[in-house]
Design a protein around this nucleic acid. Structure first.
Length: 207
DNA sequence: TGCCAGGCCCTCTTTAGGGCCTT
């Protein structure tokens, strides 16, 4: 895609955002022309405790968060970094909840749609053993981006996967122009109907 | 007191149930 897309990933203290469940780290990988061209990453201190299970998963400790900048400052910087670029994430329904919640703490609201590399992978890469981010990265021989379950490494993994999905649409499905709006529509098409939908898109691009 | 996400997708489905995926 020639347009810039901001691929984001949050580490958090749990599954559902709220007063006791907040983001602890954000990573953003800015994709343009099929590669990562810019990066943003920061731990963020929202004043909540990290449960032991989450610390074991992410390696992010309470001591690390005590030394981290406040969440509102980090989110203000992250929102400025993203600007008006369309968004993407792996299992975007998760990151979208936290993006919206953390922005709402600043009185801000999201203006862009999210593309979801999980939904797109289920449709375009059904032969993969499963659709976890790490599995897809290894299965598609995408670059090792660092420690899994840290925000920027995961954001870059999802960014590389987004580029791989775009390559799949261009190569296997012979689509010329791929853009974020097309991906957002594609991820809503029922998996069983994806092939005829792509055939229609291909035919329309030929006209 | 006891519970604790939710949207997507498949199938032994649609008057439902269970696995996947994210932390």
């Amino acid at each position: 895609m020639r347009q810039r897309v901001a691929v984001i990933d949050f580490e958090t203290t749990g599954i559902t955002p709220g007063p006791d469940c907040r983001a602890t780290e954000i990573g953003v990988a800015m994709v343009e022309n099929g590669r990562v061209v810019d990066r943003f990453q920061s731990l963020m201190n929202a004043g909540v405790r990290v449960p032991p299970m989450i610390e074991a998963l992410t390696g992010i400790s309470n001591a690390m968060l005590r030394a981290a900048p406040p969440a509102h400052a980090v989110m203000r910087d992250a929102a400025a970094f993203v600007g008006s670029a369309p968004l993407a994430a792996h299992n975007a329904s998760f990151d979208r909840k936290f993006w919206d919640y953390e922005l709402a703490q600043l009185g801000l609201a999201r203006g862009q749609d999210f593309a979801c590399t999980l939904l797109l992978s289920r449709r375009l890469l059904p032969q993969a053993p499963n659709h976890k981010l790490g599995t897809l990265t290894r299965w598609a021989s995408l670059p090792d981006t660092g420690r899994a379950h840290r925000a920027l490494a995961d954001a870059e993994m999802a960014a590389n996967l987004l580029c791989h999905l775009e390559d799949t649409l261009r190569g296997q499905f012979r689509l010329g122009d791929v853009n974020h709006g097309m991906l957002c529509k594609l991820q809503k098409v029922a998996a069983a109907k994806i092939r005829p939908y792509l055939d229609e898109l291909q035919a329309a691009q030929r006209v």
